[in-house]
Design a protein around this nucleic acid. Structure first.
Lengths: 243, 243
DNA sequence: CCAAAAGTGTTGACAATACACCCATGA
DNA sequence: TCATGGGTGTATTGTCAACACTTTTGG
């Protein structure tokens, strides 16, 4: 904070937001992408995002862009847990001008299919399995890789996994989230005990039950609890040598 | 990315960096502050930082400002591990204009006293115990609180604690870092075993030893190892109910 | 010899894993 | 009644905290 007061003294920076929005569907982690309509990178896939307006915070801009560019329901976008990933500021990351971008991650439950491919600006938004994503516009491949890494490790020591689930979910669904993102199998009885032993991770919905696979015993339903961090953490197996 | 190409189309944003640089000295966590020489907030303490130049990344700017504003040795600043904390973008956080600031944290060993209070721009830089910090310029109190929180939890699952130590350190010194930041006492034998059992956390310096308190057995010296994350984590006691 | 700090050993409580088993439901 | 998924019990195995003990130095 040593330079002057004239806002036009410098070559201006633009500030944008980019969003890595994940969901779990059909046993695979998916990310929300849009197809760019204009140059640069016209026709390429990109993370949703856009410019921060003069009177907006980055988080406000992120919610606005998400609602505008994708067909996600308003209520969901408003309630969404957005987490700052990091800010990307390499001088040449955008060929047009100097653009600094604040990246966010968000986790949403598996939505009914048509929600996102609908009309308007959302015409070119779709869920894509992260394994099938190839080239992306700008440095979005880097942002996506960072976000994926963050999400994986966040599951170990936070309660975020519930964000991938519908408002009421079964422990089997929660376990499937972990298994999908970590790509490992977990022991069901032990998973169940760990989750229930962590105060505030989930709370039971009294009396409720739901059938999951058409067959089998109906599973009890749970809601996300008030906790945000997991003590002790739920470590993914065989990351270290021991344990 | 839906708006135009004219860099001057919007009210310009300025992009700055702010740094929360911590050290442990005399059993207390200290943060590096500078006293502001100009308005706004002239005379107030603030985190070091400044404007990102047109051809710089945020991280480059952070290193440059740190070297300029504080008396920290060039070599240390160049080698420093900088970690992005988050970006602060509330519209009115700077009264002069729209300023978006990328905040970083850094951890440095306890330096010989005069290093920082020296001449030049550094005349007004000093280490201050975090407990004694009261009001700060801008939203720097918020940034500092976020940074302090982050550093505390980072110690649990990363090897960052060694960054607070000199290049070669004793396990007693490393333990003191944890005890200071978490404000808890740790059992020495158990701490020692956990650290040594984590591959890549520290590596022994063969044959070296140093006296710490003037009396007592000289302690073996260790260097930081190649690992960056701790598996299993080194949890602070009594954070959760169990464990 | 005493105090102080580093370092080692041991034990008992607790937690986690692996796996056997029972329950409820649809076909 | 069988297949499928939910849920419980339990024994073995390992881990960790607590603390007694030994070692090496300075005064």
């Amino acid at each position: 904070m040593s330079a002057g007061y004239d806002p036009y003294a410098f070559e201006p920076f633009a500030v944008t937001v980019d969003l890595a929005v994940f969901t779990v569907r059909g046993g695979a982690l998916h990310v929300l992408l849009i197809r760019r309509g204009q140059e640069p990178y016209a026709g390429a896939w990109a993370l949703p995002g856009g410019f921060v307006l003069p009177r907006e915070s980055a988080e406000t801009a992120a919610r606005r862009e998400l609602a505008e560019e994708t067909g996600l329901p308003e209520a969901l976008v408003a309630a969404l847990h957005l987490e700052q990933l990091r800010t990307y500021s390499e001088p040449d990351r955008d060929p047009r001008m100097r653009v600094v971008s604040v990246a966010f991650t968000a986790l949403v439950p598996d939505l009914p299919e048509p929600a996102v491919e609908g009309g308007g600006d959302a015409a070119h938004a779709r869920w894509m399995p992260v394994g099938e994503v190839s080239a992306l516009a700008f440095d979005h491949a880097l942002i996506l890789a960072d976000a994926r890494e963050r999400v994986g490790s966040k599951l170990e020591y936070s309660c975020l996994a519930t964000a991938f689930c519908p408002p009421e979910f079964t422990l089997g669904e929660l376990q499937a989230v972990y298994e999908t993102i970590w790509d490992t199998a977990l022991d069901r009885p032990n998973f169940r005990r760990k989750v229930l032993a962590t105060p505030g991770f989930v709370e039971a919905v009294p009396g409720a039950a739901r059938l999951t696979g058409g067959r089998g015993k109906p599973a009890a339903l749970y809601r996300p609890g008030p906790a945000t961090t997991l003590h002790p953490p739920l470590l993914r197996p065989s990351e270290g040598t021991t344990r």
